[in-house]
Nucleic acid binder design. Structure first.
Lengths: 244, 244
DNA sequence: CGGCACAACTGGTTAAGACCACTCTATCCG
DNA sequence: CGGATAGAGTGGTCTTAACCAGTTGTGCCG
C-alpha cells in the first residue's frame, strides 16, 4: 500500500490512490481512519484530508463525525444511467414515487409570496414542504405555496401519494391549465444536502413554477430542488419560419 | 480591523468578515494579501485560506497566483437580476452577443457521435467549439457537431456573430424545424471554469440538443455548458384535460 | 537608453502537532 | 441484570512553520 511516485501534486496522487482503493468496495463500506492512512501513505493529515475533501465533494466518500469515512451510497455514473427522463409534470410511472411531508401549515403570505401569488400580504398561504422519493432514494425537495382559500380542508395525506393536481381538480374544483417554470443551476446547501443524501455543494437544479387555473388565477408557486445526478429535463421544441 | 468575538467556527467568522469587507468594493479590486490579513485578523494562514476557499467557491473572490486575490467580476445577486430569461433559441437582443471560436475542424464521427447524428462512424463531422460572450462576459461554452456534408464550405466567420440558424437556411438550404433538448445540473470542470471565468465546481447547466430539419434529418448535436449564475431557462407549459 | 536579471512580493502545497467534539463500546456499579 | 460512565477511536478545527511557484517592479549593466 504505497503511493505512485509519479509527478503531480501529492494531494492529487493521494486522491487518485483513494479512488482506486474505493473502486472495488461496496457502497457504504468504511475506509481506514485518517491517521492510519497517513501512516500507510506517508503523507500528513492535512494533505490526506484535502484529498478526501475532493472525494467528499464529488460524492465518492461520505464523512461521519466520530464514526469514520465511508464510500458513498451510490456511484455517480450509476446514477446518471438511472436518470428518469421526462417532464416535471408527468414523472414516469416506473418506480415507487412517494412524498414525505416535512412541513404543512398556513401563515400570512408576507410581501414576497404575496407578489408571487398575487394576494394581499396578510392573506393566508398554505406552505407544504415535501421530499419526493423514488424507490427509497430521495429525488427532490418541493416547497409549495398555495392560497389557503383555494385549498381549505386539504390534509397532508392528500399529498403523500398520487397526483396532487387530480386532488385539486376533484376535491377543490381547481382546474390547472398552464404553468411558467424557470430552471437554473445551483448547488445544495447544508439542509438540502442532508435531505437529499448528497454532499453539500452538490450540483442541483432549482425549478420555480407558477401554475394557473383555467381562469388565469394563480394556483401555486413552487420552488423545488432536484438532485443533479438523478434528474434531467427533456423538452421538445418546434420552430416557426421566423425563428433563427 | 478585528474579528467578531462571537461564537462559531473561526473560519466562518473570517469568511463573514471578508464578505462584509468586500461588500463595498468595486468588482475586480484586490483584497489585502493573505499574510497581511492573517496578521490583522489574528488567524493562521490555513484558517484564512479556508475562509477564502469558501468565497472563491461561491464566486465572490477570484485568486490569481502570484498577483493577488480579487473581488469577483460580478456579484451573484447582480448577476441573477441581469440573467437573460427566455429560450435558448431566441436570446434577447439586449447586450452584445459574440462568439469566440475555440475550435473549428472536421474529423471522422467515431462511434458515439455517429449514433447521435445517425451517420456512419467514418463519416466526417464538423466540430465547432465556441465561447458565447455577452458584454465581454463569458456566458456559455457550446460544442457543436454537424454532418460535414451538410455544411461544406462553412467558415469560422459564419459563426462569429449573427444567427447560425439563418446561415444554415440561407447559405446551405438547411431549414431547422425542431429540437429535443435535455437539461441537467452539473458543475464546471477545470477547463470550463477557466473559459467561463468562474471557479472550478461552479454550478452550471449542461444542455444537450439534437436539432432536426424539416425532413427529419439530424442537423446538429450540441452539448453546451451555461454559467449557472447567468442563465436560466424559462418555459411555458400547457396542460390538456388528461394531464394530472 | 534599453533589456535582462534579481529581489520582493503574491498565492499554492505540505508538514507535524495540538486540542475539540462526537460515537461507540466495554466496564463498573447499583 | 441493566443502565450510567469512562475511555478509546473517529473526524473537525486551528496553529506554526517551511518551502515551491508564479508575477512584477526595480535597478544594474551593457
Amino acid at each position: 500500500m504505497t503511493l505512485n511516485t509519479g509527478a503531480g501534486l501529492k494531494r492529487d496522487r493521494v486522491r487518485d490512490f483513494l479512488l482506486d482503493f474505493v473502486a472495488d468496495m461496496r457502497a457504504g463500506e468504511a475506509i481506514p481512519s485518517e491517521r492510519d492512512l497517513c501512516k500507510e501513505l506517508g503523507v500528513s493529515r492535512p494533505t490526506l484530508r484535502a484529498a478526501i475533501d475532493d472525494l467528499v465533494r464529488s460524492g465518492v466518500l461520505v464523512r461521519e463525525h466520530g464514526r469514520g469515512t465511508f464510500t458513498g451510497p451510490h456511484r455517480v455514473t450509476q446514477a446518471l444511467a438511472a436518470t428518469p427522463s421526462g417532464s416535471f409534470y408527468a414523472p414516469p410511472a416506473e418506480g415507487h414515487w412517494l412524498s414525505r411531508i416535512l412541513e404543512f401549515g398556513s401563515a400570512p403570505a408576507g410581501p414576497q409570496l404575496a407578489r408571487r401569488l398575487q394576494l394581499a400580504p396578510a392573506a393566508l398561504v398554505l406552505r407544504v414542504v415535501r421530499l419526493r422519493v423514488v424507490d427509497d432514494e430521495p429525488m427532490a425537495i418541493e416547497r409549495l405555496h398555495l392560497p389557503h382559500l383555494l385549498v381549505d380542508g386539504l390534509v397532508p395525506d392528500d399529498m403523500e401519494s398520487g397526483s396532487f393536481y387530480r386532488v385539486l381538480r376533484e376535491r377543490f374544483g381547481v382546474d390547472v391549465r398552464s404553468a411558467v417554470q424557470t430552471i437554473e443551476a445551483t448547488v445544495t446547501d447544508e439542509t438540502e444536502a442532508a435531505l437529499l443524501s448528497v454532499p453539500e455543494h452538490f450540483p442541483a437544479l432549482m425549478v420555480e413554477r407558477t401554475t394557473r387555473d383555467v381562469n388565469g388565477g394563480i394556483v401555486e408557486f413552487t420552488r423545488s430542488i432536484y438532485r443533479g445526478d438523478r434528474y434531467r429535463v427533456t423538452s421538445e421544441l418546434h420552430f416557426d419560419a421566423a425563428s433563427g
